[in-house]
Design a protein around this nucleic acid. Structure first.
Lengths: 111, 111
DNA sequence: GAAAGCACTTGCCGGCCAGGAAAGTGGAGC
DNA sequence: GCTCCACTTTCCTGGCCGGCAAGTGCTTTC
């Protein structure tokens, strides 16, 4: 499966980039966990999640653990696709620059 | 030479990312050329270049071609380093996500 | 040699977005 | 009924970004 490169402004923004990349690594992630990982206030995270949800990039689940409400989030298929597309776009940019995108890059720089 | 990953907000912003990545591929680039490539107005580009220069990421040369002033820009050593560091930071983010950064990624996704 | 042109630069906006504080909401617990 | 919890929404502020328009310095043209 090939991912078509597509630079995604929504994902590119630093905070959302970190949220999304966190979500790629997990299944359902809890609100508080995310909040602490990205270092946002409740309100700020809530708004970012709403934005991502409106874009269809995340699924939000409100479950009751015991009797306490817990909100969890995961990337939707669309969200994963968008992230992969964005990464591909970044790779193109980097490739154009001549900087290798490999674990151990061969430096092409000299001055 | 290993590049230490360092997420660089200044470089991350989409317009500057495209400016910087263009510059990685060239030596001296001309003002008009950059302006057309990134699709900015003179003033917007001028301001971005000033920002990059103040950060020490670019060198700006005002030369006279014949008798006409021409401004050219190139990445400074610091700029290249910052770009490489930023790319490394992005790689870390991507690596954490389980998405391979290789030309033909092995998909780790399933639902 | 005054006026116009070129190649930017600077000043002055308006618009957008992001984040925090605080107030609001809805169920649980007492 | 009041409070707590777990968010959500509202309100506000501050920052950045881009375009337009005016300015600058030098050159060319009439």
């Amino acid at each position: 499966m090939t991912v078509e490169p597509r630079f995604d402004e929504l994902i590119h923004a630093p905070t959302r980039l970190s949220i999304v990349s966190l979500l790629t690594a997990t299944e359902w992630a809890e609100f508080k966990y995310l909040r602490d990982q990205v270092g946002l206030s409740d309100s700020a995270l809530s708004k970012q999640l709403t934005t991502l949800e409106e874009a269809g990039y995340v699924d939000i689940r409100k479950a009751f653990i015991g009797k306490r409400a817990r909100t969890s989030v995961r990337l939707s298929a669309l969200g994963r696709q968008a992230f992969a597309g964005h990464v591909a776009a970044l790779q193109e940019i980097v490739a154009r620059s001549g900087l290798a995108v490999l674990p151990d890059p061969v430096q092409a720089f000299s001055d």
